[in-house]
């Protein structure tokens, strides 16, 4: 689903932590454009700034300098409320599943819809069940997280991230806590669902076994986005 406008357009983005003498620059002059429907993987050693970039794109952090446009909206200088709205357009998947232990699978997925006022109670319940069915957990709607395996929990997390049909899915090492087979299955599922929804994916990973799902791979090192090659060039 190509569109004239990139989902993410980043120019000259910098970011630093701390202030005064403690100030440490972690991102330098980042430039990155991601088109709608693209699947982009970001690799790089830990501490290179991958997660920082991801949290900036997801609206979890204020952009300090440069330009970061999400769906055409500039996030540099955005208000807290702008960031809340940006977060609602983004699905986020973390290393850990971060499901709420007091909620069933269906209630957890429902939380992904509750932030959007346009869904009615019945609609939310129905969409949550449908989404869990799509990730293969249609039989486990009323299970609590502690009754599910690691892979199942991560699939509930995927369902929660995608149930509101976000324009962008951000995933921070979603396979880190899973064994290789389960990790592979989860990523394939994520890829499959996102493509059906026309959702763009930016995925941070160390896992070299899943690189083949990418349209493009970018590499981060010491806060600099190093090379920017199409995925087929790697293979």
């Amino acid at each position: 689903m190509p569109s004239p406008q990139p989902v993410i357009a980043i120019h000259n983005l910098g970011h630093a932590f701390g202030r005064g003498e403690q100030r440490k620059q972690v991102l330098f002059d980042i430039a990155l454009n991601i088109k709608a429907g693209e699947i982009v993987l970001m690799t790089g050693p830990s501490g290179s700034g991958k997660t920082t970039l991801l949290t900036l794109i997801g609206g979890l952090r204020h952009v300090q300098s440069g330009s970061l446009k999400f769906l055409g909206q500039e996030l540099c200088g955005a208000t807290a409320e702008d960031l809340v709205q940006a977060r609602r357009q983004t699905g986020y998947i973390f290393q850990a599943h971060n499901l709420h232990e007091s909620l069933t699978a269906r209630q957890n997925v429902r939380m992904g819809l509750e932030v959007h006022p346009q869904y009615s109670v019945e609609k939310m319940s129905m969409l949550a069940a449908e989404m869990l069915d799509l990730v293969g957990l249609g039989e486990r709607l009323d299970h609590y997280p502690d009754q599910l395996s690691g892979g199942q929990k991560q699939r509930v997390a995927i369902a929660r991230a995608l149930v509101s049909r976000p324009k962008l899915l951000l995933a921070d090492e979603p396979t880190a806590a899973l064994d290789s087979k389960t990790g592979r299955d989860v990523v394939t599922l994520m890829q499959h669902l996102a493509q059906n929804q026309g959702c763009t994916i930016l995925l941070v990973t160390h896992d070299s076994r899943i690189l083949d799902i990418a349209d493009r791979i970018v590499h981060m090192e010491d806060g600099v986005l190093k090379h920017n090659t199409p995925a087929n060039a790697v293979h």
Binding site: V84, A96, H100, M111
Partner: peptide, 15 residues
């Protein structure tokens, strides 16, 4: 006990 879940809710766009 729920601080991680709460942070997740914030990342999802809850105020």
């Amino acid at each position: 006990a729920h601080i991680k879940e709460y942070a997740t809710f914030k990342a999802m766009g809850y105020r």
